Amino acid sequence: MAAGGDHGSPDSYRSPLASRYASPEMCFVFSDRYKFRTWRQLWLWLAEAEQTLGLPITDEQIQEMKSNLENIDFKMAAEEEKRLRHDVMAHVHTFGHCCPKAAGIIHLGATSCYVGDNTDLIILRNALDLLLPKLARVISRLADFAKERASLPTLGFTHFQPAQLTTVGKRCCLWIQDLCMDLQNLKRVRDDLRFRGVKGTTGTQASFLQLFEGDDHKVEQLDKMVTEKAGFKRAFIITGQTYTRKVDIEVLSVLASLGASVHKICTDIRLLANLKEMEEPFEKQQIGSSAMPYKRNPMRSERCCSLARHLMTLVMDPLQTASVQWFERTLDDSANRRICLAEAFLTADTILNTLQNISEGLVVYPKVIERRIRQELPFMATENIIMAMVKAGGSRQDCHEKIRVLSQQAASVVKQEGGDNDLIERIQVDAYFSPIHSQLDHLLDPSSFTGRASQQVQRFLEEEVYPLLKPYESVMKVKAELCL
């Protein structure tokens, strides 16, 4: 049975990233139509530049190519590739079939990587351009969430054990800070992308030097003109047959890092959902379990974690691919890159769409948070109580021993009897502590235990987050809708 299948058929496997999760716009960027249309555009740009620099290419040939950029006979191309065992030459023939007058000058002087690699770089750039505003929107939604809850005390956790208090907004800023680093890295790697350009079979530009009869300047002009037509500021000066596969490492490393950030955020949300302090959106008709109707599973956060793990592992592909590119190139890269580049971007696209949807509907339960604080705060307040007693004339050592005994009794009630923490009640009825009984409410005010959390939130948002989001103001209103 021949390899390949009808990918629109229910009898043929289709990647869930495309069929179930990723956005239509990201799927289109990695589609065959987008790819092969870009090949034709690159052939047109090459012909236009070659004509401008004096090669015998007519206006009629150029116009014929322009008129057929979208006229792609995919069936013919597939048949040609089956016959020739070469995808680029299959599309040269297919393009030439609908451009008979231009057929002889299509791909003039070029090698397969002229269309293959340059198209990949265009796709990487455009895919990054799709991700950047999506990530900015996630940051914006979380920034709104953090600002609104900047002063809401909550129990902090280290080692997932109760620690000092923080605020809900401050905790959210930990998430935002990681995503801001990801946004900066995505922008950097996007701006650092260079075009492969017009380089020939081993990167020496020998074929173009021959076409222009040894004119170095025209060869350099050709490279520059096509690079500018493709919208790049610069091209690699040095290439082998391909652009260095280190570029793929750079791009997928940034995406993998984004995956790590999203995994951490969504894990926190899942843990908070278990504590009943916070939940992701839950639709009115949504079913959490087929057997347990009360369940409210954090399905979206779980999906993000599941896909983020996949995204983090994909960076190993370009690392290994770059390491086995012998001399000017081997074909070890080809099949692998067809999979890992598309999957990385479709996965990143999915987790950003999902995280935006989550961040637009996060639900906080202040009463649950308050109750958990009441359970733990008495123990945390013991040092403040000791200091207040010393100020009232008591002995630190005597007070410490009193607190120690009462704390152990209260802990026994919590752990052995399943009761509430009654340390404060014990202190309130103990005559030894009568000098500070009137101060206990103040000493137990949760806001006095959150330090500068709310001020940190305000400063972080104003100095770091809002300036970073400013270039994306025009796209901030787009909502994230999930079908599944």
Rank of each mutant, 00 (worst) to 15 (best):
H442A: 13
Q375G: 06
I57C: 04
Y34T: 01
E464I: 07
S23G: 08
L44E: 04
L311I: 11
L275V: 08
K470G: 13
E462L: 14
L222R: 01
D333E: 03
T267W: 07
N68V: 08
D191I: 09
R85Q: 01
N274G: 04
E343Q: 10
Y34F: 13
G203V: 01
A77G: 14
K233G: 10
W43E: 06
Q458S: 13
N384A: 15
V29S: 05
L440Y: 06
G156C: 06
D441C: 07
R85C: 04
R309V: 11
C173K: 01
C98D: 12
G197W: 01
R188A: 02
S454M: 11
C113H: 00
L252W: 05
P446A: 07
A103V: 13
F36N: 06
G5K: 15
R270S: 05
I287G: 01
I105L: 09
L307M: 14
L211E: 03
T227L: 03
S31F: 01
P446G: 05
E481D: 13
I123S: 10
D445G: 09
W45S: 10
Q205F: 00
S412D: 13
D333K: 00
S454Q: 13
I339W: 01
V138T: 09
G393H: 04
C99Q: 07
F145H: 10
I287H: 00
L84R: 11
G231R: 09
H7V: 11
S112V: 01
V219I: 13
T321I: 10
E425C: 07
D268Q: 05
D178P: 00
C27T: 14
M89F: 09
S306I: 00
E464P: 02
R245C: 00
T242A: 09
F449N: 04
K246I: 03
L209W: 10
Q455P: 15
R149N: 11
V92W: 01
A235K: 09
G169Q: 01
P471Y: 15
G200K: 01
A206C: 10
Q320H: 11
P435A: 08
A230D: 02
L331K: 01
S359R: 14
Q458G: 12
K477T: 11
H217K: 14
P56G: 11
Q458I: 07
A110N: 00
H263V: 05
Y34S: 12
L84G: 07
D59P: 10
T239A: 14
L69N: 06
K35N: 10
L311T: 04
R83W: 09
E280L: 00
K402C: 00
D248M: 00
S290Q: 05
E343C: 01
A381E: 11
H91A: 14
H263L: 07
I424F: 10
A78S: 13
F30I: 09
